[in-house]
Structure formats: structure tokens, C-alpha cells
Design a protein around this nucleic acid. Sequence first.
RNA 1: CGGGGCGUAGCGCAGUCCGGUUAGCGCACCUGCUUUGGGAGCAGGGGGUCGUGAGUUCGAAUCCCACCGCCCCGACCA
Length: 489
Amino acid sequence: MAKEITSRSEDYAQWYIDIVKKAQLAENSAVRGCMVIKPHGFAIWENIRDQMDRMFKETGHQNAYFPLFVPKSLFEAEEKNAEGFAKECAIVTHYRLKNDPDHPGKLIVDPAAKLEEELVVRPTSEAIIWNTYRDWIQSYRDLPLLLNQWANVVRWEMRTRLFLRTAEFLWQEGHTAHATAEEAVAEARQMLDVYAQFAEEWMAMPVIKGAKTANERFAGAEDTYCIEALMQDGKALQAGTSHFLGQNFSKAFDVKFLNENNQQEYVWATSWGTSTRLIGGLIMTHSDDDGLVLPPRLAPVQVIIVPIPKPSEALSEAAEKIMRALRAKGIRVKYDTDMKNRPGFKFAEHEMRGTPVRLGLGERDLLANQVEVARRDTKEKTNVSLDGIADYVETLLETIQQNLFNRARTYRDSHTTPADTFEEFQHILDNKGGFVLAHWDGDGATEEKIKELTKATIRCIPFDGEKEPGKCILTGNPSAQRVLFARAY
RNA sequence: CGGGGCGUAGCGCAGUCCGGUUAGCGCACCUGCUUUGGGAGCAGGGGGUCGUGAGUUCGAAUCCCACCGCCCCGACCA
């Protein structure tokens, strides 16, 4: 047993922190609210990034890069967006330091170096991007404009948590321009589908697609779509959002195009984003009290070969042969050449780091022409013949990927509960947790009241929800379909 | 940003209430030997501005003040 990880049942929040730190994914830095992403954590992010990037390219998008700083006058141009982010912006006011005359060796901000106009450190890039798009778009032939950027953004959060909410985080933000509202909505929906597909097929994290209520909508959006996942403690995590921005930004930044009839029209917009928060979701979907559990498709190392008791000429030679066969199939495999630690220590270590498959290879295995195959997800161990080991491992990795998804979906489904009365609703939230499907009258004030009473919010109005009429659990007013409630991160 | 808790070696902690020689312990680290199929044992060794700053005092990890950070609860938050 891993002695150092707090168990989930004892203290879920501490368990999460323990996993992040013990699996060496990230740690707090000298900067308030900002984390250092360590090599293992960053390798996971690189895998997430690379695959999502492929999916963006396959759907016709290109990457570009826009500045970190947004002049305040541009930032405030789209009023709702500016208002929504105003409370959490870092602002650059000066561009120079100078020696402090009163304290040798110390520096002070040079008051003579005050900027004419303050620069907002981007909390999101709509403003700077739409200001740029104005010059890029003249005609319907320039549309659609389909760009994405991989970047860091800063949101001065009051309370931060590693990966889930940090003051600076890495993300991707897509920003597209279209000739018609229909086309923009279709784009926003398409990208939500891309997110859902990525979450389910790569992260093995089942998600529910839906629309946000007006209260939960992105500042400046006409409509916000999202994917919502359920964590092991019964709380929901918003894993990605895609927004139909209407003409709000094109009007704010005066982005017009000439249509086929030679008439000026404002452009229709979308934006969509996912962040390093996904890693938090990945952790809380699959990991256990022994450490991180990674889906094979995103694991930096998919197979670790542990020589028992330690590397020797014969064992290393056998390991090399296995590695060649696995690599020929595109499997990421590593041989543990550490001479210092004993096998038991290494087993625990690799489990902590979430490596999906471990091959234990000792002299007695060589004699029997076999290897011990251990699965991280189920902890099962099997002896497998070295003949055809690559095929076996290839199949096993797919099996693990599928098993993790099925396991998470079973959990999610068994923690998605309908409620027809407010008492029932509250009881489920307090005792079982998870998603609660309940009727809501569509009124923002009702939503607020429910949140106040239960701390649960409407995660989304599911797209695939049955159009089953009913009565709002709070007001009794008519409702057309159940919406998805949960307490959330 | 409000309430509570905490900050002593890389990590986890004792010591602080009640000031007093050279600040301890476990893990980790270094060296050696014995070990090695689920987190090894023994022996020796290195590592500290006690979160930061300013005070009180002959003397401060310990008392006072301010600040910073972390964790929890709340408010806030795509």
C-alpha cells in the first residue's frame, strides 16, 4: 500500500493534492496561485495538446498567436465581456524599475515610467483577436476564419487549486468568424463535439453535452455550450466550453464583411476553450488510493519494464528485445534502469505515477520464456509468454483504455439521479451526490434560489435530454425538460 | 476578500504555552557492507537566515506588531 497518500474516503481534497504532488505532476510556486507544472504533468499536457491539436486541424483550423497584453481600451470594448472579467485581471501599469534610494540593493517601480495606457494581462483573448480580425476580414470570401491559439492566460482567482483553478493556466482558445449565425452555431456545436470526443476517447472521461443557462453563460456570449464530467466525490467539473458569440464582438470591434450582394454585414463569432484543468479532471476521474491512474492514450509512458531484482546483462538484453517489439507498434515503453531501489519500491513508484502496464522481468521469467504483466487499473497480474508479448500488450492497452471509460461511465450513470420534489433533490445532493436531473422553470431567479439553498447549480441543459414535461422542483411552474444539477468545482 | 488552522533541513513533524549552552526526530540524501519477486537492514556522514521584516530583552524558533504564503470553510469565479 502507498502509505503516503491520504485515502479518498478520509479526505478527498487532501487525496487530490497528494496525488498531484506524489505523482510529481505539479507543485506550488513562489508566485501566489501559480503552479509549476513538472515534467510528468507537462508530458500529460503535451499528449492532450498534441491530440486536440490534430483534431482541430482535422476540422479545418489553423494555429496563430496573439499578444499576452491587451490595451485597456480594447479590453473594455465589449462591455459584458469586460465586466465579467474585470474583477480578476492583472494589470501592467509601468515598464521600468529603478534602484531604491532608501534601500540599497532593492528596486522600486519607477514612477516616471508609467504607461500612457494600462495593459491588461489577457484573461481571454477575444478583445485583442477581434480587434485584429477587423483588418483581416473584408469579404465573404475571407470567411470562415478558423483560428486557434495555444497560450497562457491569467485570472486573479481568490482561491486556487492545483490544475483545477490557478491564477495562470495553459489553454487553447479557438476564435472563429462566420458569415451567418447558423454557420457559427454549427461551428460552436462541432467544437463541443470535438471536446466530448476527446474527453471520452482519449481521457476515458464520460461527459454530458449541453447548454448553459443564461446565469452561467460566458460573459459576452449569446449561448454557451459545455461538457460536464462527474468526479469521484460526486462533484461536477466543467471540462470545456464552446460559445456562440453572435455579433457582440464584431459590433464592438466593427468587424464587417461584404456579402455576395455587396452589402455590409457584421460577422458572426464563436470561441471555445479547454485548459490544464483537464488534468485535474483526469486525476479525479480515474485515480485511486495508490496514486495516479492514467488512460493509456494519454500516459507519457504506457509500459514500464522493471528488471527483477535489478538490471543485469541478460535482463537488459531481454528488455531491449521487448522494447523493440513494442516500439514497432508505436507503444511508449521505458526500461527502469535504476540500480538503487528494490523491485517493491519501483512497483509502488510506477503505480504512483500511473503507468498503465508494468512488465516484471526476472531470471526465472527468462527461464520460463515469460514476463509478469501487471495492470494499473485493476492491479491484476498475469504471466504471459514472451512470444507475441507485443500483441498482448497492444491489446491490453486498448482493454485498459476501454475499462477506464466503462468504469467511469458506470459510476457516472449510477450517480445520475432524477428528483421530482425539492426534498428528494436536497436529499440526493446531501447523501449520494452526483448529477441530479430535475425540472426547472427556466427562471434565473429560481436557479439562484436553488443554488442558495443547496449549493447546487445547473451544470447544463442536456442536448440529448428527453423532452419530458414536468413541474419545477422549487416553484411548481411548468418545465419542458429536466436539467442537470450538481455541486461543482 | 471574511472566519479558522498552519509555516522549524527536500518532505513530514516535535520543541513555542512558561525566552536561557551547540535546535531535535522520522523519511529522503551521501559513503560502506549485507540484501533484492510488493515501499530492505546495519554503521558512519552531510544538510537549518526556525516564512519575511521591524520590535521588546543581557539573551528570541519561543513574547509583541506588521506583512507574505499554504490548507479548510464562506463569498467570488466560464
